[in-house]
């Protein structure tokens, strides 16, 4: 395994992801950044307004009804 270590979400991931519910574009709101990559923040659907958290550099784009109904 290479020594490359992902710090966070690359900004151009915005060209790849969309709202999982209606497939519309997302707006990025950055709370913390490291080396140009997003460590924490939110993604908000430009259409339905649903928000998705970015935590520890990983965007959580699960539909809201799937965020809780998962095993510990």
């Amino acid at each position: 395994m290479a020594a490359t270590h992902a710090h966070g979400m690359k900004r151009d991931l915005m060209d790849i992801v969309c709202c999982p519910l209606d497939k519309h574009d997302l707006d990025l709101d950055v709370e913390a950044e490291e080396d140009g990559e997003v460590v924490s923040g939110t993604l908000t659907c430009t259409d339905c307004g649903e928000t998705y958290p970015i935590e520890d550099g990983i965007p959580n784009l699960l539909p809201p009804d799937m965020r809780e109904e998962t095993p510990a």
Binding site: A6, M9, K10, L13, D15, I16, V17, C18, C19, P20, K23, Y52, I58, P59, N60, L61, L62, P63, M66
Partner: peptide
Amino acid sequence: EAVRADLVAPFR
């Protein structure tokens, strides 16, 4: 580069 996702739902 990791994304928490249900299969391919949040991809364009």
